[in-house]
Amino acid sequence: MSRTSTKLSRPQTILRAVVLGAGAILFLFPFYYMVIGSLQLTPDTSVAGAFPSPDNITTANYEAINSRINLFAGLINSGIFTGGVVLCTVVFGVLAGYALAILKWRGRGATFALVLLVQVVPFQLLMIPLYVLIARNYGLSDNYLGMILPFAINSTAVLVFRQYFLQLPRELFDAARIDGAGELTLLRRVALPLVRPAIVTAVLLTFIGPWNEFLWPFLITKDAAMQPLAVSLANYVTNVAASTANPYGSVLAGAVVLAAPVVILFIVFQRYFVSTDVGSAVKG
């Protein structure tokens, strides 16, 4: 990337490469181990088990999952659930984050405190009353809306957008306001193009919550045809111990199946992490 104007010396570059490489191995190891473990015929938890061994390899764990779970339906349901959540998260998160960071309005402090409060309260505290509210009072059990609702607005995303908008230079907005632009125009024309990395970040960060969420969708729907992948896989995993040869391998295979779409999504999206040079935007 060209933005490194403070050039590193050669040894420093090498040092950086070594540190990053070693870190990457440390971080990649679990994923690697998970894939290896999921392909093992019999679980090998010794150190040697971390390396592939030709006479201990099988795809049986994946075949077992495939035969017991409708992967396609699970993926579609996960897509609807997660897509709904992410869409709401981004749209409402941008609005709320913008209001909290850029606009001056009475109640802003209180709203910020509320965002923090929602973030801080442990979900386990609210779970049963929340279920009663959504299933009984709103009548949303066995319904995608009921699945999505509690996750629809993500306080983390609001905080991410707020932080990102705060980072933008104020002059940018003041200049546009003098030109008579309304706040919505300002948000759309000035702020949004600059926060593209923040949107990508928020998508990647909040995607994983609903994608891996098991308990809530399961509480809200017992209808197998509507259950997201995480629920079907968790259901599968809770009882494989009684029915397959390598229960641990099945758990790992389930985790691989669940993680793979996310990793692909990340690879596709990460290239949007490019710099939007704010400095030139101010000048321009």
């Binding site: 709320a96 109640g107 709203t111 609702l149």
Partner: peptide, 26 residues
Amino acid sequence: LGVQPIGWLFGAPYLVFAIVVFAYPL
């Protein structure tokens, strides 16, 4: 409502959500 009351409008979806979903359990 403050200098830029439109902040309420922008914050409204979040606030409505917080009330509809979280106020009762909390």
